[in-house]
Amino acid sequence: MTIHLLNDYCTNGFKIEFVDMIYLVSIFLGILTIVNRNPIVSVLFLIGLFVNVAGLLILVGYNFIGLAYILVYVGAVSILFLFILMLINIRISELLNETNNDIPLAVLTVLLFFYIIGQVLPTNLTDNTIVSTLSNTFSDERNTELHNDFFNLRDLKQQIDYASSHGWDNSLIEPTHIASIGNIMYTSYSMWLIVSSIILLLGMVGAIVITIKQK
């Protein structure tokens, strides 16, 4: 029986600890983005953060969202950011501003966020993550574990925890996320698509109206 339940994270996706490591790296990159004095270097760390998050999304199985993240945020928005930052001349006095007194506020915000999120999310499946164990130490009320004599879920937990959708059944038939999103967006929710496209059009026309020269 136990032979069939080997941990094969080489072929079957990634263990959830890898995802935790990516979380830690992205937190590190986010801190570096804020701390750095040189705006261009700080935007570079922001790009690193974007790439990291996109990698996380692709690892977890959201291929399309991850690639769209790279394409839109990294490939277009951040390049324009960098482009404009390189063109404008930033005064030294702004770079020497003391920003360290905001750090306690940031830490407090993050802790509050994780406290609330950790209480809301179901904790049974994500028991192994560092974040959820941290938040569970503060609050025990939602942490109800399934104890049952017939099927002992605690033993099976190790096998459930692969944080990827690279299961064997997915290679038989796998509708891509882009097809699923398209099927929903162009049928049931077409009204919202039209509304959002009108908002985009308004944005474009607004930008043109602002920059046009009045005679």
């Binding site: 399309f64 690639l67 769209a68 790279i70 394409l71 490939g75 277009a76 390049i79 960098l82």
Partner: peptide, 24 residues
């Protein structure tokens, strides 16, 4: 890859960074 074309677009848009960084 089921999203091969999108992957190629994303990767080719990232190559711009090298030029931008090298020049700056």
């Amino acid at each position: 890859y089921s999203l091969g074309m999108l992957y190629m677009l994303a990767v080719s848009s990232l190559a711009t960074y090298g030029i931008l960084l090298a020049g700056w």
